[in-house]
Amino acid sequence: MSRSAIKLHTPAGRKALDKMIHEAERKAQEQAAAKPARPGAKAAPAATAKPAAMGAGEIRIIGGQWRRTRLAVAQKPGLRPTPDRVRETLFNWLGQDLSNWKCVDAFSGTGALGFEAASRGAASVIMNEQDAELVQQLRRLQQRLDAKAVKVVRGDALSCLKTASGQDLVFLDPPFAQAELFEPAIQAAVAALNEGGFIYLEAPEAWTEERLLELGLELHRYLKAGAVHAHLLRKQ
Protein backbone atom coordinates (compact mmCIF):
# COMPACT_ATOMS: atom_id res chain seq x y z
CA MET A 1 0.00 0.00 0.00
CA SER A 2 1.39 3.41 -0.99
CA ARG A 3 1.41 6.20 1.58
CA SER A 4 -0.78 8.31 -0.71
CA ALA A 5 -3.44 5.58 -0.59
CA ILE A 6 -3.63 5.59 3.22
CA LYS A 7 -6.65 7.40 4.58
CA LEU A 8 -5.35 8.83 7.85
CA HIS A 9 -8.80 9.86 9.07
CA THR A 10 -9.83 6.18 9.40
CA PRO A 11 -8.66 3.75 12.16
CA ALA A 12 -7.48 1.30 9.50
CA GLY A 13 -5.42 4.02 7.85
CA ARG A 14 -3.73 5.06 11.09
CA LYS A 15 -2.98 1.42 11.89
CA ALA A 16 -1.42 0.85 8.45
CA LEU A 17 0.77 3.93 8.81
CA ASP A 18 1.98 2.88 12.25
CA LYS A 19 2.90 -0.50 10.82
CA MET A 20 4.91 1.08 7.99
CA ILE A 21 6.78 3.39 10.37
CA HIS A 22 7.59 0.49 12.71
CA GLU A 23 8.89 -1.60 9.78
CA ALA A 24 11.07 1.27 8.53
CA GLU A 25 12.58 1.75 11.99
CA ARG A 26 13.30 -1.97 12.28
CA LYS A 27 15.11 -2.05 8.92
CA ALA A 28 17.16 1.03 9.85
CA GLN A 29 18.27 -0.63 13.08
CA GLU A 30 19.26 -3.80 11.23
CA GLN A 31 21.30 -1.84 8.68
CA ALA A 32 23.05 0.13 11.42
CA ALA A 33 23.96 -3.04 13.25
CA ALA A 34 25.37 -4.58 10.08
CA LYS A 35 27.73 -1.65 9.33
CA PRO A 36 31.35 -2.08 10.48
CA ALA A 37 32.37 0.22 13.30
CA ARG A 38 34.40 3.28 12.44
CA PRO A 39 38.06 3.15 13.47
CA GLY A 40 38.41 4.42 17.02
CA ALA A 41 34.70 4.25 17.73
CA LYS A 42 33.70 2.79 21.10
CA ALA A 43 31.80 -0.43 20.97
CA ALA A 44 28.36 -0.46 22.49
CA PRO A 45 28.37 -2.12 25.88
CA ALA A 46 27.31 -5.74 25.73
CA ALA A 47 24.32 -6.84 27.73
CA THR A 48 25.41 -8.71 30.80
CA ALA A 49 23.50 -11.64 32.19
CA LYS A 50 22.63 -11.70 35.84
CA PRO A 51 24.73 -14.20 37.74
CA ALA A 52 22.91 -17.31 38.80
CA ALA A 53 21.87 -17.19 42.42
CA MET A 54 23.53 -19.58 44.82
CA GLY A 55 21.05 -21.25 47.11
CA ALA A 56 17.36 -20.55 47.43
CA GLY A 57 17.13 -16.76 47.00
CA GLU A 58 13.66 -16.76 48.52
CA ILE A 59 11.00 -19.04 49.90
CA ARG A 60 7.23 -18.75 49.68
CA ILE A 61 4.98 -19.64 52.59
CA ILE A 62 2.23 -21.86 51.24
CA GLY A 63 -0.59 -21.52 53.78
CA GLY A 64 -1.80 -20.03 57.04
CA GLN A 65 -1.65 -16.44 58.26
CA TRP A 66 1.43 -15.61 56.14
CA ARG A 67 0.20 -17.37 53.02
CA ARG A 68 1.98 -16.26 49.82
CA THR A 69 4.51 -14.23 51.78
CA ARG A 70 7.90 -14.36 50.09
CA LEU A 71 10.91 -14.35 52.35
CA ALA A 72 14.49 -13.71 51.27
CA VAL A 73 16.98 -16.30 52.49
CA ALA A 74 20.75 -16.40 52.62
CA GLN A 75 22.28 -17.51 49.35
CA LYS A 76 24.74 -20.23 50.26
CA PRO A 77 26.15 -23.09 48.20
CA GLY A 78 24.48 -26.38 49.04
CA LEU A 79 21.46 -24.84 50.72
CA ARG A 80 18.48 -27.01 49.79
CA PRO A 81 15.10 -25.65 50.91
CA THR A 82 12.14 -28.00 50.80
CA PRO A 83 10.37 -27.30 47.47
CA ASP A 84 7.00 -25.53 47.57
CA ARG A 85 5.20 -28.52 46.09
CA VAL A 86 6.64 -30.92 48.67
CA ARG A 87 5.78 -28.58 51.56
CA GLU A 88 2.25 -28.19 50.26
CA THR A 89 1.85 -31.98 50.12
CA LEU A 90 3.34 -32.43 53.59
CA PHE A 91 0.92 -30.00 55.23
CA ASN A 92 -1.97 -31.58 53.36
CA TRP A 93 -0.91 -34.86 54.98
CA LEU A 94 -0.83 -33.17 58.38
CA GLY A 95 -4.29 -31.64 57.95
CA GLN A 96 -3.32 -27.99 57.29
CA ASP A 97 -4.12 -26.65 60.78
CA LEU A 98 -1.34 -27.09 63.35
CA SER A 99 -3.01 -25.11 66.15
CA ASN A 100 -1.45 -25.89 69.56
CA TRP A 101 1.22 -28.17 68.07
CA LYS A 102 4.76 -28.08 69.42
CA CYS A 103 7.39 -28.44 66.70
CA VAL A 104 11.14 -28.65 66.24
CA ASP A 105 12.90 -27.82 62.97
CA ALA A 106 16.21 -29.47 63.83
CA PHE A 107 18.22 -28.66 60.67
CA SER A 108 16.45 -25.40 59.94
CA GLY A 109 18.50 -24.01 57.04
CA THR A 110 16.23 -21.54 55.25
CA GLY A 111 13.47 -21.99 57.81
CA ALA A 112 10.93 -23.00 55.16
CA LEU A 113 9.45 -25.80 57.26
CA GLY A 114 9.50 -24.04 60.62
CA PHE A 115 7.93 -20.82 59.36
CA GLU A 116 5.31 -22.81 57.48
CA ALA A 117 4.36 -24.59 60.72
CA ALA A 118 4.17 -21.29 62.61
CA SER A 119 2.05 -19.77 59.84
CA ARG A 120 -0.43 -22.62 60.29
CA GLY A 121 -0.91 -21.99 64.01
CA ALA A 122 1.78 -24.04 65.78
CA ALA A 123 2.01 -23.01 69.44
CA SER A 124 5.80 -23.27 69.47
CA VAL A 125 8.47 -23.86 66.85
CA ILE A 126 12.10 -24.35 67.84
CA MET A 127 14.25 -23.59 64.81
CA ASN A 128 17.75 -24.95 65.27
CA GLU A 129 20.64 -24.14 62.93
CA GLN A 130 24.40 -24.44 63.30
CA ASP A 131 25.52 -21.97 60.61
CA ALA A 132 25.90 -18.50 62.16
CA GLU A 133 24.92 -16.61 58.97
CA LEU A 134 21.77 -18.66 58.56
CA VAL A 135 20.88 -18.14 62.23
CA GLN A 136 21.04 -14.36 61.72
CA GLN A 137 18.88 -14.65 58.60
CA LEU A 138 16.30 -16.72 60.48
CA ARG A 139 16.15 -14.14 63.25
CA ARG A 140 15.59 -11.35 60.74
CA LEU A 141 12.74 -13.29 59.18
CA GLN A 142 11.29 -13.98 62.62
CA GLN A 143 11.31 -10.26 63.41
CA ARG A 144 9.84 -9.33 60.04
CA LEU A 145 6.91 -11.69 60.57
CA ASP A 146 6.63 -10.94 64.28
CA ALA A 147 6.58 -14.72 64.70
CA LYS A 148 6.17 -14.95 68.47
CA ALA A 149 5.79 -18.74 68.45
CA VAL A 150 9.22 -19.16 66.82
CA LYS A 151 12.42 -19.54 68.83
CA VAL A 152 15.64 -19.51 66.80
CA VAL A 153 18.61 -21.24 68.41
CA ARG A 154 22.12 -21.92 67.23
CA GLY A 155 23.62 -25.31 67.93
CA ASP A 156 24.01 -28.96 67.10
CA ALA A 157 20.79 -30.62 65.93
CA LEU A 158 21.24 -33.77 68.03
CA SER A 159 21.85 -31.73 71.18
CA CYS A 160 18.75 -29.66 70.44
CA LEU A 161 16.60 -32.76 70.04
CA LYS A 162 17.96 -34.34 73.22
CA THR A 163 16.85 -31.30 75.23
CA ALA A 164 13.40 -31.17 73.62
CA SER A 165 10.45 -33.19 74.90
CA GLY A 166 6.71 -33.37 74.48
CA GLN A 167 6.88 -32.45 70.79
CA ASP A 168 4.12 -33.16 68.27
CA LEU A 169 6.19 -32.76 65.11
CA VAL A 170 9.91 -32.87 64.32
CA PHE A 171 11.32 -31.81 60.95
CA LEU A 172 14.50 -33.64 59.97
CA ASP A 173 16.37 -32.47 56.88
CA PRO A 174 20.05 -33.31 57.52
CA PRO A 175 22.73 -32.56 54.90
CA PHE A 176 22.48 -35.39 52.39
CA ALA A 177 26.28 -35.76 52.32
CA GLN A 178 26.35 -36.63 56.04
CA ALA A 179 24.71 -40.06 55.99
CA GLU A 180 25.97 -40.82 59.49
CA LEU A 181 23.62 -38.16 60.92
CA PHE A 182 20.35 -39.71 59.84
CA GLU A 183 19.87 -42.61 62.25
CA PRO A 184 21.05 -40.74 65.39
CA ALA A 185 18.82 -37.80 64.42
CA ILE A 186 15.81 -40.07 63.98
CA GLN A 187 16.46 -41.76 67.33
CA ALA A 188 16.75 -38.39 69.09
CA ALA A 189 13.58 -37.17 67.38
CA VAL A 190 11.63 -40.26 68.48
CA ALA A 191 12.67 -39.59 72.08
CA ALA A 192 11.53 -35.96 71.79
CA LEU A 193 8.03 -36.86 70.49
CA ASN A 194 4.75 -37.38 72.24
CA GLU A 195 3.11 -40.74 71.60
CA GLY A 196 1.56 -40.59 68.14
CA GLY A 197 3.73 -37.62 67.17
CA PHE A 198 5.15 -37.15 63.68
CA ILE A 199 8.59 -36.93 62.10
CA TYR A 200 8.99 -35.42 58.66
CA LEU A 201 12.18 -36.83 57.14
CA GLU A 202 13.91 -35.76 53.93
CA ALA A 203 16.60 -38.16 52.77
CA PRO A 204 18.59 -39.05 49.64
CA GLU A 205 17.06 -42.55 49.71
CA ALA A 206 13.84 -44.25 50.79
CA TRP A 207 13.77 -45.75 54.29
CA THR A 208 12.10 -49.15 54.38
CA GLU A 209 9.18 -49.87 56.66
CA GLU A 210 11.16 -52.66 58.34
CA ARG A 211 14.03 -50.33 59.18
CA LEU A 212 11.64 -47.70 60.52
CA LEU A 213 9.78 -50.24 62.68
CA GLU A 214 13.05 -51.04 64.42
CA LEU A 215 13.22 -47.37 65.42
CA GLY A 216 9.67 -47.35 66.74
CA LEU A 217 8.13 -45.63 63.72
CA GLU A 218 5.54 -46.40 61.09
CA LEU A 219 5.58 -44.97 57.58
CA HIS A 220 2.49 -42.77 57.35
CA ARG A 221 3.08 -41.13 53.95
CA TYR A 222 5.86 -41.05 51.33
CA LEU A 223 6.73 -39.29 48.09
CA LYS A 224 9.74 -38.83 45.85
CA ALA A 225 10.44 -35.46 44.23
CA GLY A 226 13.62 -35.38 42.20
CA ALA A 227 16.50 -36.41 44.45
CA VAL A 228 14.42 -35.93 47.61
CA HIS A 229 12.68 -38.81 49.37
CA ALA A 230 10.06 -37.30 51.69
CA HIS A 231 8.71 -39.43 54.55
CA LEU A 232 6.02 -38.64 57.09
CA LEU A 233 6.61 -41.01 60.02
CA ARG A 234 4.48 -41.62 63.08
CA LYS A 235 5.69 -42.70 66.52
CA GLN A 236 4.12 -45.99 67.57
Rank of each mutant, 00 (worst) to 15 (best):
S108G: 11
F91E: 02
L90K: 00
L113F: 05
Q136H: 07
T69K: 11
E133M: 11
R70D: 02
K102L: 13
N92D: 13
T89H: 01
R139P: 00
R139G: 04
L134H: 06
L90H: 07
A74L: 14
V73S: 02
D84M: 08
Q130K: 14
R85Y: 13
V73L: 07
I126N: 07
P83V: 09
K76M: 15
L79V: 10
L71V: 03
E116R: 01
E116T: 06
N128Y: 11
L79R: 04
L79F: 05
Q136A: 09
K76S: 09
P83T: 14
R67Q: 15
L71I: 13
S99W: 10
V104T: 14
A118C: 06
Q65R: 15
R120D: 06
V135C: 12
E133A: 15
L138K: 00
D97W: 09
S108H: 03
E116L: 02
A117F: 02
Q130E: 12
F91S: 01
P81L: 02
S124F: 05
E88P: 02
N128R: 07
E129Y: 10
V73W: 00
N100T: 15
S119A: 11
F115K: 01
L71Y: 10
Q137A: 15
S99H: 15
F107M: 13
D105H: 04
D84K: 08
L98A: 11
L134W: 05
Q96D: 14
R139N: 09
T89R: 09
R139Y: 01
N100Q: 15
D97R: 10
A112S: 13
M127V: 08
S119R: 07
R139H: 04
F115I: 05
W101D: 07
L138S: 00
A118E: 04
A118R: 04
D105G: 03
E129D: 14
A122I: 05
W66G: 09
C103L: 10
L71A: 09
E116F: 04
A106E: 12
R70T: 10
R87E: 04
Q136P: 08
P77K: 13
A106T: 12
A118Y: 07
L138T: 01
Q75E: 15
T110L: 09
I126L: 05
L113S: 02
Q137H: 10
E133N: 12
G109I: 05
A123H: 11
A132S: 14
A122L: 08
R85F: 15
R85V: 14
G109Q: 08
S124C: 12
S119M: 10
V104R: 00
P81G: 00
R68Y: 13
M127K: 01
T110R: 01
S119T: 04
D131F: 13
E88R: 05
G111V: 10
S99C: 08
L134K: 14
D105P: 10
G111E: 12
Q130H: 13
G111L: 00
K76T: 15
Q96P: 04
Q96N: 10
R67D: 03
V104M: 08
R120I: 07
W101E: 04
A118L: 03
K102T: 09
Q75W: 03
